[in-house]
Nucleic acid binder design. Sequence first.
DNA 1: TGTACACCGTACGGTAGCGTACACAAAGGC
DNA 2: GCCTTTGTGTACGCTACCGTACGGTGTACA
Lengths: 281, 281
Amino acid sequence: MLMVFTLVSQLLLFAYRPDGCTGRGLNKGGIGAEEGKEYKAVEATYNADYLKSNRLLGALPVEEFEHLQPHLETVTLEVKDFLYERDVPIEHVYFPIDCVTSVMAQMKDGRMVEVGTIGKEGMDGLPVFLGAQTAPLTSFCQVPGDAARMAADALRSEIGPGDRLHELLHRFTEATLVFAAQSSACNRLHSVEQRCSRWILHTHDRVGKDEFHLTQEFLSQMLGVRRASVSEVASALQGEGLISYWRGNLRILDRSGLEAVACECHGVITKEFDRLLDSGA
Amino acid sequence: MLMVFTLVSQLLLFAYRPDGCTGRGLNKGGIGAEEGKEYKAVEATYNADYLKSNRLLGALPVEEFEHLQPHLETVTLEVKDFLYERDVPIEHVYFPIDCVTSVMAQMKDGRMVEVGTIGKEGMDGLPVFLGAQTAPLTSFCQVPGDAARMAADALRSEIGPGDRLHELLHRFTEATLVFAAQSSACNRLHSVEQRCSRWILHTHDRVGKDEFHLTQEFLSQMLGVRRASVSEVASALQGEGLISYWRGNLRILDRSGLEAVACECHGVITKEFDRLLDSGA
DNA sequence: TGTACACCGTACGGTAGCGTACACAAAGGC
DNA sequence: GCCTTTGTGTACGCTACCGTACGGTGTACA
């Protein structure tokens, strides 16, 4: 089943080529070259502490976590493994441990724009919590790593009101809403350079490393712009000494410099996440 | 208290003038001319059926509605009455009866973009339900009319898990998320004419009338574009016989024609709302 | 060692939408 | 009936970004 996701979606992801490449990329990403690929649902020798690296799971009272633990399994996600696709029933929810996932709105013509990024601070699969059976949006792995996953039915049946996780997911939902809202306005009002810097900062917060893999092609799809635009912006940022970027390896050199280039949206979103997830209201 | 909202916010709404007008408009919307304005919190002679015009309230089982009814009061909202402002504590939630409210993301420089529209199918004030104390976004009345309102504390204390309203608000939250996500992508990928048509359709769905008041200035702020752009688009739509638009009075003449001009986003959002709020998953 | 291919820098014409400005007609207060 | 305000149409130069294209340089694999 997940196999199907991977194949169909690799095709989708590459079907839209903003740089106007011909079939070359399509073949690469398409079924032909990916036939041997297998979705690695590794049941790692997980332990409680590892699962609790996810901040939602880590914030649970002992007995609540122990109640959920039998329903959790560790899976390893590779870049562009698809978790959800629009109108397809949701089978699992994912609590990222050290991976990062992207939620994408996708148009009929195949063009996509990222509308959410989820790391260890959250859970991918909110629609299950909110009462939907099928996914309204597409989601895939952006930065590889592990996640704790749980069957959608388990989430529905095991989490009730009054549970700590129920409250935490409410707050995470609120933060996600603010993220989407701010992104919407940001897409309307801010330049490619600002949005690109914001995206790098946001991902930097989530991967927890100063260096990660990221091609311009990939980033251009996240931002919904041409790859050439990303190239221009990346050159500028590199010229100012804020990042180093070479063949898909991005390294943040000057984070505060990046923050100065980025729009206010990163700060607004970060503040909102901290406010809702760390402490009180 | 609500008085303060009105005054401060009128100022905010007019502080950004995309058409580059000078202080003229500012004075009009500012404190000077609005001093005599009063927020009409009319306690109408409401009855259950009237309150139940709101689809969320209307979908409740009898006993649940009767349990909530003592906490509900009818208020009349005028255009640009502000319901929420960022970082200000939320005192009430609003169930629109025949008004429509807009949720706006607003930047430091005063520029705004609409990120949500709420009519009788929903509730304004989701952050309360989701555990926030203060508003993360600005919200004001877009189409005047009545709403049932409830103290935020009442919503927090009277609605528990297992209640029908709890489930309905979950689904409404999901629909709102999809709205924000699709809007975000739409803002990135579609033209002003497409987005403008989409906005008109969306509002048409919510007001339930073929004619409503809407200045180009107002619409330009919703869309986050110049008023001049709205003027150009409106002329085009009028030329094609899809709408008539004269001095703030908009009339929809050819709805299916509008749908053809608009992007797919309106259909996607509408489908999602229907799916989540009308029937099953 | 060659040769595919992934990834990137750069260029060039085209255009949607911007900021700004101005004039004009209808609405409304005095 | 005048005068201010509100709402609108239109224009002009400008800029960011688009679609497209092509060549160059590393990396992987035979």
